[in-house]
Design a protein around this nucleic acid. Structure first.
Lengths: 358, 358
DNA sequence: TTGTAGGCGTTATCAG
DNA sequence: CTGATAACGCCTACAA
């Protein structure tokens, strides 16, 4: 059985109809409305289809006609492959695909290029809607998606008119982390955070940059942390805040080194994600600094590896985020766009935090 | 900025052209071949587009015309969400998307339903090719995909004419595991395997079923294990082989219980996957049986959790599988279909295997 | 139960 | 540099 690479032009609905001496409607019905024609005629059609190697109605042409793609698109502020390296994204995807499966809708992972603003892949995506996951406010891919005449729901993003939003209260959750630390009497800390904008800035982030961060989530987490420490009398401009573009343990480790260089006397390092926190701990361990005896460390997200490692963190319901995003987008009664859904988080203290030594 | 929900029919290339008093070609060129028209005319077009809320060329219509979808489809023999629960699949996906990103091609996760043969979602997928990952030989989704006039590459699947294949030598690798165990003097064993067909059969799998397994990978692993033990003089029909439809640790645990019930004297349990092996170990531990002192356990795949737990296993290059699948499918010079690519595996002995006690 | 015919929105081709 | 024309393959009132 060779993949019917005949020289003859590929069969179409029309050619099949011609061959059989029936109308296109009949052939179309044979596929889409089997009950609209006699079983015998139908099987004659199907038989001829097999004989001519007609693979059934062209999905694209059908899509053009019906105005439905049968798929939704997912936008990540990153290369798609990154999503499979990040436990949080994987959990989100699981939740989202749970809904897609149920609705029998495909999920298109839209290719992206971190250092290009060419969003043609978004404009070219044949989808009935978009889910944007954790993107920068000013991401051109996001803008392109929102400009398309299809519904969208964004996660971990600020409110945008006419778009559904799902997220958590990052500010409040981060504040809890800060309060936990100040309650433990920490007053001299360092912060390690994820990228604050689309530009690569591996190094210190001053207050201006912190507040102008285009990454909604990071901005709020930083604000929550600051609020907590300032409330405890800490002067924020003496707190080293180190930013990393890549979200990896290695990045967390090198950022920790940078924090320590800026202030060797910190008693705690606050990381705005678990992955970074794990890197911080690795670096501390490498330097023979004990956690939490010498330095306390906190994370954020509640990914499996961090929880297993006992990191003090904030647990986020990633899977539910995905599910809700899917539900909102796939909801057949899609009126009332602009819905806002804030999911609960859980502060989870662990053995990586303790009172400072002195 | 409300999402331009004007009552007026949505703008199209044609309406825009009419509005401007130019031809459709010109508008089309403004988007696709900016160099083909004067900068001023182009900006006039773009300005009018913005004014009328024209979102740019419709991707579906463009696709119909150009005969390119800009995406490839991924078929899993499972609900899509399952892929995000299985570390092996996640790694495969990372590899595949690495290639997709590079080629700027989207990846469509085609929805599937384990207990329905309705493959319309495959027929309806607007893609330029398919990757089938670890499916049953007789999966209707696979058949439907292969019937479509687009290239395909299958992973962990037997040869099919005209289709590229990437996989590993499951038989040889499994034989290595068996030889390791027989070398340790194990002669009384039990086997826990994944689903052998699309029908749910949670229970013993006799030789007929083992050999008729429609899941290529499982069939070969079982054959390799059998070959090794038979070569050591073990009579295979006395070896309990327990099958599980779900691929979870819980399934592995319950299968272990079933193996133990069938033959309480086994000195080793061979699992055809790490996930199952981890479940086996959990069950053994629950029963206060020590691994490997009382019972040895082996897995297959080399997923992170198993390697960390010291499971004796076979490490497969999942990420590379994905990459190669992507490369083969996306290869611009797509001649010579029917390529076969066998990736290397590494046998990794760990502390879950030791000689039997007596 | 079957057929007719218009149009979905775009791009390739070729002429001016 | 711009425009007219002809598909691309299909769906779906509507008519018979």
């Amino acid at each position: 059985m060779d993949r019917s690479r005949r020289s003859r032009p590929p069969a179409t609905l029309a050619s099949l109809a011609a061959e059989l001496g029936v109308s296109r409607t009949t052939v179309s019905n044979a596929y889409n409305r089997p009950d609209q024609l006699s079983p015998q005629l139908r099987s004659r059609v199907m038989e001829a289809a097999r004989r001519l190697g007609y693979p059934g109605p062209d999905p694209v042409a059908r899509s053009l006609r019906t105005r439905k793609a049968g798929a939704i698109g997912l936008l990540l502020g990153e290369h798609v492959s990154y999503a499979f390296r990040d436990p949080a994204a994987v959990a989100f995807l699981e939740g989202l695909t749970l809904e897609c499966d149920q609705a029998k809708v495909g999920l298109l992972l839209v290719p992206a290029d971190t250092d290009s603003d060419d969003a043609t892949s978004v404009a070219a995506a044949a989808v009935d809607g978009f889910v944007a996951y954790s993107m920068s406010d000013d991401d051109p891919y996001l803008a392109t998606a929102l400009a398309r005449p299809v519904p969208a729901v964004v996660c971990d993003q600020p409110f945008t008119a006419g778009v559904d939003v799902v997220g958590v209260d990052d500010h409040a959750a981060a504040r809890e982390v800060a309060d936990h630390l100040t309650g433990l009497s920490h007053r001299r800390i360092g912060v390690v955070c994820m990228r604050l904008g689309r530009d690569r800035n591996d190094g210190p982030a001053d207050l201006t940059r912190q507040e102008a961060a285009r990454h909604h989530v990071q901005r709020h987490r930083l604000a929550g942390i600051r609020e907590g420490f300032v409330a405890a009398g800490v002067s924020w401009d003496r707190v080293p805040v180190v930013e990393r573009f890549d979200h990896t343990m290695e990045a967390g480790a090198s950022a920790a080194a940078e924090v320590l260089a800026a202030d060797p006397g910190v008693t705690a390092v606050v990381a705005t994600s678990d992955v970074l926190a794990l890197g911080v701990i690795a670096e501390l361990t490498r330097r023979r600094q004990r956690v939490p005896e010498d330095v306390s460390v906190t994370g954020f997200d509640g990914i499996r590896a961090a929880v297993d490692a006992g990191v003090t963190t904030v647990v986020q319901p990633f899977l539910d985020k995905g599910r809700h995003a899917g539900k909102l987008l796939l909801d057949p009664a899609r009126r009332s766009q602009g819905r806002r859904m804030v999911l609960p988080t859980t502060f989870l203290p662990g053995p990586t935090t303790a009172p400072p030594r002195y």
